[in-house]
């Protein structure tokens, strides 16, 4: 399971303030904490705090300096993404990275696939287009297949393509949970070997009371369907424990009595 730590995001108050005041410490602390908790990648996102390429570059540099953990470079502005990726190459060289994200819209998909090729990165493809987010299974799979086809044609191997089925809030869109799981099952059949399948986990528990329980129950179900990556709160010990246990049940990791420790030492 590829765990992408969600915490370095300008939408969180402390990170937002740190970006504004150019304070490295709070950001680097989260980079270290998430790495120790078992994050494979660290998502890095300015949030709504800034639209400046300089700020994005500074944020990426700040995280790369603190830990060797690879980044998921996260923004939806092409210009910012270019600046961020260039900075990443300067400070982190050939360290692996994920570009987060494209949609199936032509105007986004082509340039982002090109960036993924240019910067040797993985690419998350969210299955939406100009018509918005799909509400059913078929549309999700159709857009997933389109993203996969365009990315493959440009030279991205399946292990560099991450399809995101768009997780929706359980509390408000209860019927979507089942659709997302079915879409994951079908994504897994798009190619052999299949692409990665990644979820933005925290959406599932939006505004609900039992957030932790909903998150980990959904993630385990998604893993059983074929999901192998999640942007999530890696500081949630119970969540990571559930992932480690699900990996054993799916026979992806070898059991040992101290497997929870082993899971955190895997990197």
């Amino acid at each position: 399971m590829i765990l992408i730590g969600e915490r370095i995001n300008g939408s969180f108050k402390d990170i937002g303030a740190a970006i504004k005041e150019k304070k490295k410490a709070p950001i680097q602390e989260w980079a270290k904490k998430q790495t120790e908790a078992g994050a494979d990648y660290l998502d890095v996102n300015l949030g709504a705090v800034s639209k400046s390429p300089e700020d994005f570059s500074w944020l990426i540099k700040t995280v790369c300096e603190a830990v060797p953990t690879p980044l998921s470079v996260d923004c939806n502005k092409l210009e910012l993404m270019r600046a961020g990726l260039e900075t990443h190459r300067e400070v982190a060289g050939s360290r692996p990275l994920i570009i987060n994200s494209t949609t199936a819209e032509e105007s986004k998909l082509m340039p982002l696939v090109e960036l993924a090729v240019k910067y040797d990165g993985g690419l998350i493809g969210v299955v939406m287009d100009e018509r918005g987010s799909p509400q059913d299974v078929d549309r999700r799979v159709e857009l997933g297949a389109k993203i996969f086809a365009v990315a493959s044609e440009a030279g991205l191997t399946p292990d560099r393509i991450y399809l995101d089925p768009i997780v929706m809030p359980l509390k408000f869109m209860q019927e979507q949970g089942k659709n997302v799981l079915e879409a994951i099952r079908q994504f897994a059949m798009i190619s052999d070997p299949p692409p990665h399948i990644s979820v933005g986990l925290s959406n599932i528990c939006s505004k609900a009371e039992e957030r932790g329980l909903i998150n980990r129950t959904f993630l385990v179900m998604a893993m059983a369907a074929g999901c192998d990556a999640a942007i999530c709160n890696v500081m949630d010990t119970e969540l990571v424990n559930a992932v480690a246990t699900a990996e054993l049940i799916l026979n992806k990791e070898i059991y040992s009595d101290s497997y929870l420790k082993a899971y955190r030492k895997r990197a």
């Binding site: 040992s256 009595d257 101290s258």
Partner: peptide, 8 residues
Amino acid sequence: NIAKQVNI
């Protein structure tokens, strides 16, 4: 399983 455990 025990091989892994001893290493841990």
